[in-house]
Nucleic acid binder design. Structure first.
Lengths: 193, 193, 193, 193
DNA sequence: CATGAATGAGATTTCATTCAT
DNA sequence: AATGAATGAAATCTCATTCAT
């Protein structure tokens, strides 16, 4: 068996939650799809909600791993450096979303859903995607980003990226090179002081 | 009684859906909160889903009424005119959201929820908030907005506004005059070619 | 329909709880036996526990009604009066138990069970069977009963009666006149100073 | 490790069964509390029911050992001898219950519970506590005890003792010397012809 | 002896909706 | 229009027990 039962449950849940929604997916169906007994699901996850929260963290982590910059964001001191770093993150995020259809749809649907604990969201924001906040604060430090609250700008970045990715996924098309540059412009211009 | 039973049901549903979520709110609780019998709810609305869709339309309409410009957007030909018109819409929308707490939370939660029919969303977008799309197309016509797909830009406008409003609501604070201008900048700069 | 659905549920629950035990009786079986839908049970009783507590109170009340003395116990001043009153209660209680098989078994099984709230037991003891406590205190007032705590003596009365009734029920026999007198002796002699 | 795993399982079961009830205590919880794996419990006991029956027997045996008279009860021929012997048993039983809190609660709860086999109860009554029945029959032989069925009187002894012990345990107090004598009077007077 | 992941039948409870009054 | 008792399918979660390691 290449995947552990736990992993098969998570995979089945991702598939079903994005295609049918959280409430419309029964735990029995998840278990059946994963090829395990219903009890097994509850052996690995305390509840259906615990399962979706774990899924959220796992996916955020996978996305962050795909985006993660090699150098710390706190050493960027020129506008050019910052813009290049931001553009790289934007491209990585968009491309990951496009090659990870289900995961992107999952975010689009569950990013602000009541099923995900605020605690889980906060954990993802600070621990997993902390480098985005770092970049924002760095940009504000050298006064090229608008002096709005950093958490608001973080949400703006996140929201714009997801909206853009979701737009192409829904349209079942892919952004061209130009689209990527243009849509990055949405973000950069929005942030720029 | 100043409010009809139908109106009391809608008010109770708004309160409960935003505070507890759609699924966590039973029709029995809505009826009890509204002070009517369970059967009465189904006299006025065909189903629980019909109820939330009606609520969505009602609220969108109320918000649009508060924002609605006096002149058509299609007659704007200069950058200045467009920017002023857009700024007015931004301010009106934000202020309405801040004085209509529950309604704003409702949008933040249900704007992309599976409980709202795509048909209802489309109806709101074209009939009720058509002037926003008009403004976007006008701006693209005179080449001051980025030449990205108009529906994508519509979503960007909507998303940024809700995110901003929700940020202040969650923080239980109010945006200052400067905040309003600065956050409008997020939108305007994002759109600007 | 001679019995309301609520009453049919209570009757079915009494039958099944005494024959199969609380845990071994599913709510589905109770509903089926009562000839109603499962949901109906939960329309009338908040939970399975609420059902058994209600049953407990109902039965206690029925037993008390069968035993209830015409005069207040607090006016008994001579030993003879007290003994006669006590003997009458003993006989009434035993006879009620013998003509109410199921109910008596129910008490024997659930009187000190964890499924019955302490609150429910207390309510039965003070409100429903208060006259027993009255008799005990009256006997202590004229110093013919042992000066032990009244609640302890109440438990002794109750326990001896149930044990005796249960003994005959289990043996599937009935106490003779002499048995009733002799067993009353167990109680009276125990209490007597 | 001073206690074998088997003993730790029994100790955990006693604790949990008395505090939470038989059904509300899962085998997984017993194992966890005992610090062993779930499977281990089933190596030592065939089933959850076998476990509680073993516990019942162990505790009955421990109590009997603490009460056990040095001489056989069948050689008592005078009222005085009998009364002294009975009083000793009463005191021993009460004191054991008071210094063995959990065990006493266990009896109060499970003495007539459906989880304990009738066979187990019978075994305890004849083999372990046979001397009580012996004493009763001896008293009836010399006509100082009421001529009621011996098993009924055995139940009366047992019931009165447990009720008394439980009363003090619940009240979190201890019986004084006088209380012990007075409560022994409850039993002796009840039995006395 | 010991482990603990896996099982799957079964339990309680919920809830949108209907309909006789 | 208004009521609220009744429905019964379906959902989540539990748990005693097994067995491969």
């Amino acid at each position: 068996m290449s995947l552990s039962k736990r992993e098969m449950i998570l995979a089945a849940a991702l598939e079903l939650f994005t295609e049918r929604g959280f409430q419309a997916t029964s735990t029995a169906l998840i278990a059946k799809t994963a090829g395990v007994a219903t009890g097994t699901l509850f052996h690995h996850f305390e509840s259906k909600e615990a399962l979706i929260n774990q899924l959220y963290l796992d996916i955020k982590l996978a996305m962050a791993t795909a985006m993660v910059p090699e150098k710390s964001m706190s050493s960027l001191s020129s506008v050019e450096q910052l813009k290049v770093a931001a553009a790289v993150l934007w491209r990585q995020a968009l491309e990951w979303c496009i090659t990870h259809h289900k995961e992107a749809r999952f975010f689009a649907q569950y990013n602000h859903s009541p099923y995900i604990d605020k605690q889980t969201v906060a954990q993802a924001q600070t621990q997993v995607l902390g480098f985005v906040t770092e970049l924002i604060e760095q940009g504000q430090a050298i006064a090229i980003f608008k002096p709005l609250p950093a958490p608001l700008l973080y949400e703006v970045c996140h929201g714009l990226m997801l909206q853009t990715a979701f737009f192409y996924i829904e349209a079942e098309s892919r952004p061209s090179e130009t689209d990527i540059e243009q849509t990055f412009g949405l973000l950069w211009d929005a942030l720029h002081a």
